[in-house]
Computed example of a mutant assay.
Amino acid sequence: MNHSRGLFGVLGLSLTVLCTAMSPAQAQDSYPNKPIKVVVPFPAGGATDILTRAITEKLAVRIGQSVIIENKPGAGANIGAATVAKAAPDGYTILMGSIGSHSISVTYHKDPGYNFQKDLMPISSAGSLSNIVVIGNDVPAKNLKELVAYAKANPGKLTCGSSGTGGLIHLTCEMFKIAAGIDVLHVPYKGTSLLMPDLISGRVTMALDTLPPYMPMLKDGKVRALAITTAKRSSLMPDLPTVAESGYPGFESVAVYGFFAPAGTPTAIIKKLNADINAVLLDPELKDKLLKVGIEVEGSTPEALAAFVGKEIAKWAAVIKAGNIKSE
């Protein structure tokens, strides 16, 4: 009897070890078999949140599992990103990242709490928001050339508002100042919603902000758009020229968003997430829904997203250095 118990005990232990050894592969094969959490490093109700919820609603149906949104704003989106970077690399905690914000933080913040390229793995891009050069009606310029001429004739008179120091909107303004060789004072606000009334009233003269919040005001003639910062013209405002074609070749700033997973997440899981997300992004209903609020959706391969991240980090590092911009 003792020998039998010993034999069965050894067999039981062996089976336990075997099952444990097999579990990671089994987990990948059956992925996902429980809800997925997507961390949004911005407050609820913003563009990133709207984009994430629209995509994950469709994604949940496709994968047959719930997708839970967790908003973790703060520190220029670094709190949410750091949370995902430190999460278990099992595909059940992923990030909807603002590539512009995170690429800037690599250089701008001394210690963002994580390494964007080493601690996070790209899954797929998700969508983008166009930025526009928008001015108040008191500024006597009908196009970008006239705006630059006015700025040079009136050094220090123009002010450029942003939703906060060190963000994509601030850095886009700095990049334009450098490209155009003009003197413009940066005025930071705690969000676009606080900036817009001052732009209308003339307390601040211009902004290089995301397009969607300004669309109603542009329609009502309360402010004017002179150019768009994307490489190509936007389908939202096809008559609006780009900054590049207005005399500054190569100028591009776009708020691109993408999904990321903790480093070490199995390749099979990354591939499955990429395939499912890209399939969802092709949904005509989703595209139309998001385009109405100014968001253009587009997927990518993980490799293409990684290459874009590297390009953005180099671009914004150059702007930060040239503008001698220091973190607060």
Rank of each mutant, 00 (worst) to 15 (best):
S253V: 14
T159M: 02
A263K: 14
K272E: 11
K37P: 00
T20L: 14
I228N: 04
E57R: 13
I182F: 04
P197V: 09
D198T: 11
G9Q: 12
L18V: 14
S162V: 03
V38N: 00
N154E: 07
T20C: 13
K177P: 01
Y257G: 01
I182G: 01
A244Q: 08
A87P: 04
A88K: 15
T210N: 13
F8H: 07
Y92R: 14
G264A: 11
P155R: 10
T267H: 12
L11A: 15
N2F: 12
I228Y: 00
G46K: 00
I277D: 02
T192Y: 04
A75R: 15
A268N: 09
F116D: 01
V139T: 05
N137Q: 09
N2H: 11
P122T: 06
K118Y: 08
E245A: 08
P302H: 07
E328W: 15
S14V: 15
I169M: 13
L95I: 10
P302V: 07
E70W: 07
G74K: 13
A149C: 03
A141S: 10
V223I: 11
P41H: 06
T20R: 08
P213S: 11
S98H: 15
T48C: 00
P140M: 08
A180C: 05
T210D: 11
A318T: 13
Q28H: 05
S23H: 11
A179C: 00
N324L: 08
P197D: 09
P241Q: 09
T265H: 05
C173H: 04
A44E: 10
T267L: 11
V67M: 07
L194P: 00
N137P: 00
Y92M: 09
V223G: 00
S14P: 05
G299E: 07
P32W: 08
I63E: 09
T159Y: 03
G166A: 06
D198M: 04
S103D: 10
L290Q: 05
T172V: 09
Q117W: 03
A75F: 13
K86E: 14
E174R: 15
N143V: 10
A25G: 12
K145W: 04
K152H: 09
L147H: 06
A54E: 12
L129Q: 12
G294P: 04
D90W: 12
P112W: 14
I320T: 08
R5L: 14
A225L: 05
I269W: 02
I313E: 04
V223A: 00
G323V: 02
K326E: 15
S193G: 00
Y214E: 02
K272P: 01
A244W: 10
F259P: 01
K311D: 13
L185Y: 06
N143F: 09
I55E: 02
P140C: 07
T56N: 13
L305T: 06
